[in-house]
Design a binder for these strands. Structure first.
Length: 498
RNA sequence: GGGCCGUUAGCUCAAUUGGUAGAGCUGCGGACUUUUAAUCCGUAGGUUCUGGGUUCGAGCCCCAGGCGGCCCA
């Protein structure tokens, strides 16, 4: 009947055998991939409606259930299979010679492999050992698997888990749990915003200028317009246009793209939350940020003391610590550091602490490097680090009382940067000066510096109310709440092609 | 970008000093009507990541490359 394609002969035995089983089903007129099955209950529904039955019970309840075969225990005249459905619920199916007859039982043994989706119709019973089961009166293939599942008793290699996440999800309940946790966190964020009267918007991912952050963009091109386009590195400049337009409480949860290194805490595409509030300041935004994180933890785990992947507990409750960057750096160095401290002196401090620095670094980047080395890397409890050098914060308002500092904070959680908040710079004249300075850096070869966005400046010229703004990485929020690496929190992280 | 480690059966991993490439699970054949990673008997399965080199002989040594991981910048 059906000709096998020649390549089948070259397949490893286990793949070949399963393909042949599929072929044999077709030859017998049995559909290996039926379009519809008479399912009456999910496995979960069967479990929930039959709790605490004693062993060897017959309920008289007839059900049709489906599931992926996770374990098979075939004896001569009685077969057991553990079925699992997507939410992780398992239910045992039993096939007895007495109930299904010789042909059906031998078909089962000859065609069903681990990993197949099957449909089983029969009575809900418990086995002699008390296992809740469906005693089949008939069964049917729901979808034949022609590729063997990796063994369930050994961990998959990390690479295979990431490259073939679908297999990871099938085999490892924790992988599925991470997906659920992430969905719960994002949902909680949206609910927190909606409760506070924020509007969710979607701003361009394809931009004619990249701005809103210092990062190297991905470049693409529009055939229709005949121009280069950038995948956005941040939504910031568009969200500020929203505030100018009168959307006074606005947020966006969407993807950013940065053409930079890939490691355990950086992914080239990552989900970002940004939110802006007219008449907010970096103080009020810090409170809101803390509440968002705490509400997410509460919503997903029912507690603000979360349990991380390594089993340790992490306390997100209550008020969080606040540090001043310059003050804490001064304390760590034992001498006062201010925005006026000369670059040469900062470099001396770096040298004396065995911190290698690029000789091209200016005051702002040196202060940040020193601070990260001496303090940031050791922060564990949730901490707002405030008042950054103004020169490295081109979109931030200068501090109202401490010249040379910006009203900006970084939120550190478990030693990494979770988010950043600002009292936004809304003076169009100062903003123009800052962007011109940035574009000068860009022209001088700084691939991370921003170009001048004239339309953005024009919007500011119409008048943007005093505002607070925050950016927070969703992937990093997941890392903070779960203790997982970034490649576990992203379902399909970018990997080099096989 | 640099250094180190890894890459072997469908999966997870062994392989002594350079001397016939193995195990468990999985698969296949058989037994078994209450199993729970079922058990028992039998059996199959390999481009040792790729290409070159040294050697009588290479999974192992050398060179180049791919992919992955860790550390450093």
């Amino acid at each position: 009947m059906s000709e096998q394609i020649p390549a089948v002969d070259d397949l490893p035995e286990q793949l070949r055998v399963r393909r042949e089983k599929r072929e044999r089903m077709l030859e017998r007129g049995v559909e290996p991939y039926p379009v519809e099955l008479p399912r009456t209950h999910t496995l979960r529904e069967v479990r929930e409606s039959h709790v605490d039955l004693p062993p060897d019970t017959k309920t008289g309840d007839l059900v049709g259930v489906t599931g992926r075969v996770m374990f098979l225990r075939n004896t001569g005249k009685l077969c057991f299979a553990t079925l699992r459905e997507g939410d992780g619920t398992e239910l045992q199916a039993m096939l007895s010679l007495n109930e299904v007859g010789e042909q059906s039982l031998s078909d089962w043994k000859a065609t069903v492999d681990l990993g197949d989706h099957v449909f089983v119709h029969g009575e809900v019973i418990t086995s002699r050992r008390g296992e809740l089961s469906v005693m089949a009166d008939s069964w049917q293939m729901a979808a034949k698997s022609v590729r063997p599942l990796p063994v369930a008793h050994k961990d998959l290699s990390e690479e295979t888990r990431i490259r073939q996440r679908y297999v990871d999800l099938i085999l490892r309940p924790a992988a599925m749990e991470t997906v659920r946790t992430r969905a719960g966190v994002v949902r909680s964020l949206r609910e927190s915003f909606h409760q506070r009267g924020f509007l969710e918007v979607e701003t361009p991912m394809l931009q004619t200028l990249h701005g809103g952050a210092t990062a190297r963009p991905f470049v693409t091109a529009s055939n229709a317009l005949g121009i280069d386009l950038y995948l956005r590195i941040a939504p910031e400049l568009y969200l500020k246009r929203c505030v100018v337009g009168g959307i006074e409480k606005v947020f966006e949860i969407n993807r950013n793209f940065r053409n930079e290194g890939i490691d355990s805490s950086h992914s080239p595409e990552f989900a970002m939350l940004e939110f802006y509030q007219a008449y907010g300041t970096y103080d009020s935004m810090a409170v809101l940020t803390r509440e968002l994180v705490q509400e997410a933890a509460e919503s997903v785990f029912g507690t603000q003391v979360v349990t991380l992947a390594d089993g340790t507990e992490y306390d997100l409750s209550g008020e969080w610590t606040t540090l001043s960057m310059y003050d804490s750096l001064s304390e760590a160095l034992g001498t006062e550091i201010t925005p006026q401290t000369p670059v040469e002196l900062l470099r001396k401090h770096a040298d004396s602490r065995e911190l290698e620095t690029d000789p091209k670094l200016g005051h702002g980047k040196l202060v940040e490097a020193l601070w990260e080395h001496l303090i940031g890397d050791h922060l564990y409890a949730p901490t707002f680090v405030r008042d950054f050098p103004v020169e490295t914060s081109p979109l931030t308002r200068e501090h109202r009382s401490r010249p040379g500092m910006a009203e900006k904070w970084d939120l550190y959680v478990r030693g990494f940067e979770l988010g950043t908040g600002y009292s936004e710079l809304v003076d169009p004249v100062v903003e123009r000066q800052r962007l011109v300075e940035q574009s000068r850096l860009a022209a001088a070869g700084d691939v991370e510096a921003m170009p001048v966005d004239e339309d953005f400046l024009r919007s500011l010229e119409y008048g943007m109310p005093p505002s607070g703004g925050v950016g927070m990485g969703i992937d990093r929020l997941l890392m903070a709440l779960t203790g997982l690496g970034i490649r576990e929190t992203i379902l399909f992280p970018l990997v080099r092609p096989e």
